[in-house]
């Protein structure tokens, strides 16, 4: 289903042998057979099946082929290569057993790579205009109100890869969910005002409709039961400006800002 925790579910499934998807039974190990298999595949098979084995001029997509999915080190693929499929217009190829095994490894690795999205590589995302990004930083984006390229952002472009940096531009604390960062300058803070007028302030530890907890500047933990509006609770998010920007950025703003920040080496 496809809900947000699926990736975690998949990761967990991979940790537990019993639930390993069958396609993962030929995990990418030694890259050499895969590379050899890819070369052989490209020269021998790609005209019909495509260079990525995902279908081509009349040849089916092999990444979704039940025969390939059932194959173990070439035991099912081999006979098809050696005998061809005359009825379907596939000629036979005389390949050595090691070449067939290599092609099988290449195909299984390609299936694994398509199915395991956790391993997908983000491509070169730095496509924006650095000058426009600088103008946005100093102007409309009002980034310079809080940040300085000679100060807190000095060298930021060499500290993080572009995808991480883009994520930090959008939400420096990371995901809001779970209040992951409870310390430091970006932590959520809270002020609790009791009926008596006494107030407690500090880093927000936890909050729901029924209680609120904080850690004060001395490191002491305080928690309070909530009953409607009593006590008064005011949560302060130092990164509210970043949150608010999520509905204002254009994608070009984001890409230009990134292009600018990666120049800050």
């Amino acid at each position: 289903m496809s809900h947000r925790r699926r990736t975690i579910g998949v990761a967990m499934a991979l940790l537990a042998g019993a639930t390993l998807p069958l396609i993962a039974q030929t995990p990418p190990g030694d890259p050499r057979p895969i590379e050899r298999g890819q070369k052989t595949f490209v020269t021998t098979c790609s005209f019909c099946h495509g260079t990525r084995a995902n279908g081509g001029q009349g040849g089916p997509d092999l990444l979704r082929s039940v025969l390939v999915l059932d194959d173990n080190h070439g035991d099912k693929i081999g006979p098809v290569i050696l005998n061809g499929r005359p009825g379907a217009g596939m000629p036979k190829f005389s390949l050595a057993p090691s070449q067939i095994s290599d092609i099988a490894d290449f195909l299984h690795n390609s299936i694994h790579a398509a199915a395991e999205r956790g391993g997908y590589q983000i491509l070169n995302i730095v496509t924006g205009n650095a000058k426009a990004g600088q103008a946005y930083f100093d102007g409309a984006g009002k980034c310079a109100t809080c940040h300085s390229v000679a100060g807190d952002l000095k060298g930021i472009g060499s500290k993080h890869d572009p995808a991480a940096l883009q994520g930090m531009i959008l939400m420096p604390r990371g995901d809001h969910r779970g209040q992951s960062a409870r310390t430091g300058s970006t932590a959520l803070t809270v002020t609790v005002t009791l009926a008596s007028g006494r107030t407690f302030s500090g880093a927000l530890e936890a909050i729901d409709d029924f209680s609120v907890a904080l850690r004060d500047s001395k490191g002491e933990y305080h928690s309070f039961t909530r009953n409607g509006d009593v006590p008064a609770v005011e949560v302060n998010d130092p990164l509210k400006v970043h949150s608010d920007m999520l509905t204002r950025y254009t994608d070009a703003d984001i890409h230009n800002l990134l292009a600018y920040l990666v120049t800050l080496k």
Partner: peptide
């Protein structure tokens, strides 16, 4: 909110063909 990245630029991409980075809520 999430950022959606295209990771497979093939004319016939496979699987998810993209990656997502959650930003916040």
């Amino acid at each position: 909110f999430s950022v959606f990245y295209l990771t497979d630029t093939d004319p016939h991409p496979e699987g998810y063909a993209g990656a997502e980075r959650e930003i916040g809520s």
